[in-house]
Design a protein around this nucleic acid. Structure first.
Lengths: 367, 367
DNA sequence: CTGAAAGCGCTTACAG
DNA sequence: CTGAAAGCGCTTACAG
């Protein structure tokens, strides 16, 4: 393809594959500057010229070249979103919220997964930043801040999503996980439960640590009837699972039932906790399945509480009492901060909310 | 900001916010052309110059401006992906496969949802195409082809995903839904089932229509013991749900149980089908929950088969027999066709596969 | 092998 | 209100 030609005079004869401002200008009999003005500040152009340009645009099917625009103005319409896992409904509901906010500013969401892997995370940050995106919404893994700061130093805006870290230099959006866990436990204590099992996620995940802190706080407070000192830890049994999945929920529940099995093979319900608080709805899903398989009734024999309020929670055969995270709102807020373009560092923390359904009730009378 | 200045001589004094080829060239003592050559065809540059440029790149933290590159070369690294629903695990597992393939070509996936709405679909196509993406992977709604053709005419490559339409002018990737449904029904017939219920999705969805065709074909063939003529439709009960969700699966199952309820309030198991084929795993999830609630045992009282083999299938308390779609592979293949850049129209159809687990067994003896 | 120059398609001060 | 011109940062034939 010949380059460096003097002009486009010959090209005027043929219909261009993709019309540009020049073609529109020629068609409308104005200069390219006027075409651009019609596109960007139509009120500064005379009505006649405006109309001629508009009909030329229609006639030629002109579409602005976004790369040229981005190059010239320095802004890209692309926003990168990197979450831990595309298959986790929590993130996808949040992504819906982000997309809604981004659409308002005609931005496009580029959604990718880090698979909770710090190496993939670094790579994704570099690639997205290299693409010159308008900004990045990131659910960070534990040691992400170093790479995040490099990314910011490279000139790419980053907003942290679903993290409780509140660094001085990077904005974030989060839910108060500790408080959410406290709500769940207080609900159970309020119903009269005293032997509670907490099926938590792995300790290396920040959300798990925060939720546990909330659980311990609630148990300490209520059981001891005093802010300081008092504690009745024996009432609480914390089990750490390997992941926040239904599968690991099943496993943990099976171990629990096995431990309560008597010589005659039946399960001694007195050996079971009266309530189980699961660190997310997926775990609760696995747990309820195992309990049902073994004819342990929910909530009559055991109450179950989840976390997140994803779709599955209300769809379980016994609709699940759970701690609702405002996922869509969370995503919306993160995108909103990113697009605000202000250099101010903002930390938005949302309050979780207890949703009481049918999986919780006072404990069985016998004790 | 002053424009139209004569050069960048003064700028040399300060560290540029973001280094460009010019800065690298100055630092390395070569021309910008050489810098570009090092970046794009390093073997055509002398080793010394190459090293000097490379270290200048490192020193200045140079990152290529993707928009300038896209503008100049005409190719964008962005690939748009528009699926029906971000919350459907089928699409998210496929998206994982797409992402893997796209990463090989250093492309970025821009994932969005059409929410199965033709208007949103048109909008998304227009916006993505307007962004000058490298191409679009689309799960089309029924009447999508008109807008798809417009998009293609605008110069944007499109590959259809999970559609059985095989237009002459647009490539596609699909699974043989009809065959999948046939596999499921043949499995049930092979076990000796004769009274089968088919819980299908809404008729307006192409997948539902194809799966029904497969079901009818299998029933007609086997039950009639003859390819032509023979048919035993009475053995098949087709129920159309409003959506492919667990919730609608529950609803349908409850209606079915209600119809089998006797005067004394108990359920007459003889009135139930001996097997239920659900048009996807989500529906099967809802159905199994309701059956369990009513103490209808799976597979002893009723066999259940799903479709997709999403994560939930193997995690149900009675692991679900289902028709596996190779979701990741499907996504990978779609991305592969898109990136091939050939103008040849390709239609890739994948074969589904029956995965037998514990939710199916021969029918209860009594009949 | 290297450098100077044109140009991708757009936007924006500036002069008229 | 309109037009001519510069330039965003890159790549690529072309001449040396």
């Amino acid at each position: 393809m010949a380059e460096g030609g003097a002009g486009t005079s010959e090209r005027g004869m043929q219909i261009p594959l993709r019309a540009g401002v020049k073609d529109v200008a020629r068609e409308a009999g104005v200069s390219v500057g006027t075409v651009s003005n019609v596109l960007n500040r139509p009120d500064q152009v005379s009505p006649e010229a405006r109309e001629r340009v508009k009909s030329a645009v229609r006639k030629l099917g002109y579409v602005r070249n976004p790369h040229a625009q981005a190059l010239r103005t320095g802004v890209s319409p692309l926003v990168g979103v990197a979450v831990l896992d595309l298959l986790n409904p929590f993130f996808m509901e949040a992504a819906d919220g982000m997309e809604r906010r981004l659409a308002e500013d005609a931005c496009i969401m580029a959604l990718t997964s880090t698979h909770s892997d710090p190496e993939i995370e670094s790579h994704v940050l570099r690639v997205l930043s290299g693409q010159g995106v308008r900004g990045i919404l990131l659910t960070p893994t534990d040691g992400a801040m170093k790479e995040v700061r490099k990314t910011v130093a490279r000139g790419t805006r980053v907003v942290l999503f679903d993290t409780t870290a509140t660094p001085k230099d990077v904005s974030s959006v989060s839910v108060d996980d500790k408080r959410g866990a406290r709500l769940a436990i207080e609900h159970l204590l309020g119903l009269g439960h005293t032997r509670i099992a907490f099926f938590n996620g792995p300790d290396r995940v920040r959300q798990a640590r925060d939720r546990q802190a909330g659980v311990e706080q609630a148990v300490g407070l209520k059981a001891g009837e005093s802010v300081k000192g008092g504690r009745a830890r024996s009432a609480l049994d914390v089990v750490h699972l390997d992941s926040f999945t239904a599968e690991d929920g099943r496993l943990a529940a099976e171990v629990m039932l096995e431990n309560a099995r008597q010589a005659d093979g039946t399960i001694d319900r007195m050996q079971l906790p009266t309530a189980i608080f699961c660190a997310n709805d997926q775990i609760a899903l696995g747990v309820t399945q195992v309990l049902q398989d073994h004819r342990v009734r929910i909530p009559r024999d055991v109450s179950v509480v989840g976390f997140d309020d994803t779709e599955v929670a209300s769809q379980l055969s016994t609709p699940l009492t759970t701690v609702r995270q405002p996922m869509e709102e969370l995503g919306w807020a993160a995108a909103d901060i990113l697009l605000s373009d202000s250099d101010e560092v903002i930390h938005r923390r949302f309050a979780p909310e207890l949703v009481v359904r049918e999986s919780t009730a006072p404990p069985r009378a016998a004790q």
